[in-house]
Design a protein around this nucleic acid. Structure first.
Lengths: 149, 149
DNA sequence: CGGAATTATTTGCGTACGCAACTATGTTTA
DNA sequence: TAAACATAGTTGCGTACGCAAATAATTCCG
């Protein structure tokens, strides 16, 4: 239960001290770097990050101020905004990714052997998928998975 | 990765709507209800909850205001404070526990079969214990585990 | 077309938290 | 014993977030 919290603290520490990035900011940059044209709608990005719309608006603020992302009105739907990764943002994510990946290895993957990692992924994804499909008692946002990331 | 978050949201929702308790508050009450004389030092309670000392101080504030916990100066060390569960707090945790337990079942345990739950626990505890013993790159609070709780 | 309902995003407000500084008490040392 | 140091807890401050309301643009009917 606390594994997640400990892992998050460690990964975030490495990221902030080496690259000045929050884990949350890193997550945003990763999604944008993987998107077509480095561009995503605010809502999609919020869903990918499993954060509320207002939460995403504020996450982006810091990244925009740092020049790593720009926000542009969506041409096809003027209600919407597109978040776009800048060259600076791309540089940042490219330099930060190795730190993060090696952190995941160091603090998690290497503590299990390969087969165990595989089985753990399977065991975790089973309830996750069920919860995502069945809003059992209430509503429940539907999300993609970016597990070992 | 998001499984934890989804689970937390669901469990907290059930708890707040049925008993007016935060998951964090519930956690405090559980630890106190299991302690000798329903009493724990602030620091120990903070460690058990994996929360900072200041965070615990504020968590207790609401429980104290609600009359479920009282804080008393520790007789043997006047720097310290003891958090003590009241009769009201004990009633509360007794009525809330079934809700929480059934939530854990509904949203998690029942989505796996018994053997899978066992294996998942083993797989998770392995890296958890390693992380708790080795402050690999930095400091790292040491914690007990209250997993399926 | 023109208003009602819907969707996308932001802003106001309140909550929860961690860190660093502070107070108070305890312990060690010379 | 008195100064130095350590420990327990609280408070000030800043951050991150969710919810509900506000704003703006789109779509849906009649």
């Amino acid at each position: 239960m606390h594994l997640n919290a400990i892992l998050g603290v460690k990964l975030e520490h490495d990221l902030t001290s080496n690259h000045g990035l929050t884990l949350a900011e890193y997550e945003v940059l990763v999604h944008l770097s993987e998107a077509d044209d480095f561009t995503l709608r605010m809502s999609s990005l919020a869903d990918l990050c499993y954060v509320s719309r207002s939460g995403l608006t504020r996450r982006l603020d810091s990244l925009i101020k740092a020049g790593m992302v720009v926000k542009r009105t969506c041409p096809s739907d003027r209600r919407g905004m597109n978040a776009v990764l800048t060259a600076k943002g791309l540089d940042k994510i490219r330099s930060a990714a190795p730190t993060h990946v090696s952190g995941v290895r160091q603090y998690f993957l290497d503590l299990l052997d390969g087969d165990e990692v595989k089985r753990l992924g399977e065991l975790v994804s089973k309830p996750l998928l069920k919860l995502l499909d069945k809003p059992i008692s209430d509503d429940c946002k539907q999300e993609s998975c970016l597990e070992g990331r």
